[in-house]
Simulated assay, not measured.
Amino acid sequence: MDGGAAVKEELLDKRHHQQEGFIKEFGSESKTLWKLSGPAIFTYLCQYSLGALTQTFTGQVGALELAAVSVENSVIAGFVFGAMLGMGSALETLCGQAFGAGQIRMLGVYMQRSWVILLVTACVLLPIYIFAPPILSFFGESPEISRAAGKFALWMIPQMFAYAMNFPIQKFLQAQRKLMAMAWISAAVLVFHIFFSWLLILKLGWGLVGAALTLNVSWWLIVILQLIYIFYTKSDGAWSGFSWLAFQDLFGFIKLSLASAIMLCLEFWYLMVIIVIVGYLDNPVVPVDAVSIW
């Protein structure tokens, strides 16, 4: 009996040590994970909030204004956002491999290569903004909302080119774990955006013009501040200046970018389809507003 009790106690003690080891390892891994993912989550929340806050402020101007911003933000810009983010995500794979292999200088080359491809893509997608009213009307959106959203879309063209610059920069910085810099910049721009949205849209009464101006400036401010950070710090050797290597092997880069874009666009199209279908309802302004807020 004494021997059996000793063995049982030894097994319980061994199990207890295993549990303690698991908890300790889990805590260590979780701490490392949140150290990386926490700033990234915060960054994406801040940047997503730019469009959401613009909708919130324009909703105080009028129902049609809210519908115009919602359709442009969710359908037109949403389509472009998904395509740009998806194509930029190809850089995540390449930069991660280069960083792991110690080829730090290639991170800057890959970022420039992605800029070339995404800026060309932005030019290809430009007709979606220019011809937004007939495109929206073709898919069943009401004429009133289509005209208002199309007008707002023309003013939001600079945002599309900011997307083309911003997403490669994000992947470039993420590969080097420089996430806190992105988080601080996004937080500062969010504060700027809130104040000037209130000032231009509500206080000065500029309406959709103020919304477009503030949103464009905010996105480009993120790009400019991140570029200043990269150019000033050199990113520990990852940035060594502009290079003609950015124009080499573009075809292979495009194939990888397109695969990423298609995968991510499918997720964004779900919301886009709902917004468009709601436009078929009678008196669609209020339903479109409601769905966009949801």
Rank of each mutant, 00 (worst) to 15 (best):
L266C: 15
I23C: 12
I185V: 15
P127M: 05
G59N: 06
I23Y: 11
M263R: 15
P133G: 12
G210K: 01
G51P: 03
V217R: 06
L33K: 01
F22Y: 14
Q176F: 05
F81Y: 09
S114E: 00
E141D: 08
I23F: 14
M84D: 01
Q55Y: 01
A63L: 13
K203G: 01
L126A: 10
K8D: 11
F242Y: 14
F161I: 06
I104R: 10
F242K: 12
S240H: 06
M160Y: 02
K255T: 08
L202V: 13
I201V: 14
T43D: 05
T233P: 08
I145V: 11
A187L: 15
G21P: 05
I293S: 14
D2K: 14
S146L: 03
G82D: 10
V191M: 07
I224M: 03
L190T: 11
G237E: 09
A212T: 05
Q55R: 04
W220P: 01
E25Q: 15
T56R: 04
M1G: 13
P143H: 09
S49E: 09
L64Y: 07
K31W: 07
S89Y: 13
M1C: 10
A132V: 03
L256I: 11
Y232Q: 14
R177M: 09
Q248A: 12
G252S: 11
Q226A: 01
G96H: 03
L225K: 01
P134N: 08
G279Y: 02
V209H: 07
Q112L: 10
L94S: 00
F138H: 10
V288F: 04
A122G: 15
V285H: 03
A40Y: 01
F192T: 07
S49Q: 13
E72Y: 06
S70L: 05
F26Y: 11
D249E: 15
A183E: 02
G3A: 14
Q60E: 05
N283D: 13
E267V: 12
E20R: 12
A83I: 11
L11K: 15
W239Q: 02
L11Q: 13
L208P: 03
W198I: 04
M180Y: 01
A238P: 05
S218R: 01
M180W: 00
K14A: 15
P287Q: 07
N166R: 13
S28I: 03
L125T: 06
D2V: 14
G108N: 06
F139P: 00
V69G: 03
L199C: 12
H16P: 01
L221Y: 04
S37D: 04
A40C: 08
S218Q: 04
R147T: 12
F57Y: 07
A162C: 09
E10P: 02
